Computed example of a mutant assay.
Amino acid sequence: MMSQTEREQIDDLPPSAKLVFKVLEYKGSLTQKQIVDESMLSARTVRYALERLEDIGVVDEDIYFADARQNLYEIDVPTEVEPDQCADAQCAE
């Protein structure tokens, strides 16, 4: 689960960065071009949003092995747990 501090940092971001975060949350790991296509934001806006998300440590950048010229972005913090993923006693609450 995301900490209160991380949640507050995300709340302080511009709307474009929040949208990019949500796209990554729902779609999983994506390249910058895929984020542009999914979010319908400009490439420049997505680049800025990803920089902001990386600055606060909630998005991680990795190599995209299918095309090494691109990077793969993914959420670096645990988000909401789906009900069908709860197998531990801590999810029984």
Rank of each mutant, 00 (worst) to 15 (best):
D12Q: 15
P83S: 10
K22L: 13
S29E: 15
E54G: 07
K27A: 14
Y64P: 00
P14A: 10
S42W: 08
D37C: 06
A66K: 13
I56T: 06
T31Y: 08
Q9E: 14
L19D: 03
Q4H: 11
D37K: 07
D62R: 13
D60T: 14
L72I: 04
Q34E: 15
I56R: 00
I63T: 13
D55E: 15
I56W: 03
G57H: 06
I10W: 02
S29T: 12
I35W: 00
E82S: 15
C91P: 03
G28W: 05
Y73F: 15
I63V: 13
V58E: 01
A68S: 12
L41S: 02
I75D: 00
I63D: 05
M40N: 15
A87E: 14
R47Y: 10
C86I: 14
L24D: 00
V46T: 01
E82R: 06
E54P: 03
D88I: 02
E80Y: 04
A89Q: 11
P14I: 08
A92E: 15
G57P: 05
L19F: 05
V59H: 00
D55M: 10
V20M: 04
S16M: 05
R7I: 08
S29F: 03
E38M: 07
A89M: 11
E74M: 09
K27S: 14
Q4M: 11
A43Y: 08
V58L: 02
F65C: 07
R52M: 12
A66Q: 13
V81Y: 10
Y64S: 04
P14E: 14
P83Y: 05
E93Q: 14
P15W: 03
K33L: 12
I63L: 09
G28Y: 05
I63S: 08
E93S: 14
A68G: 06
E61T: 09
M40Y: 11
E8V: 07
E54H: 07
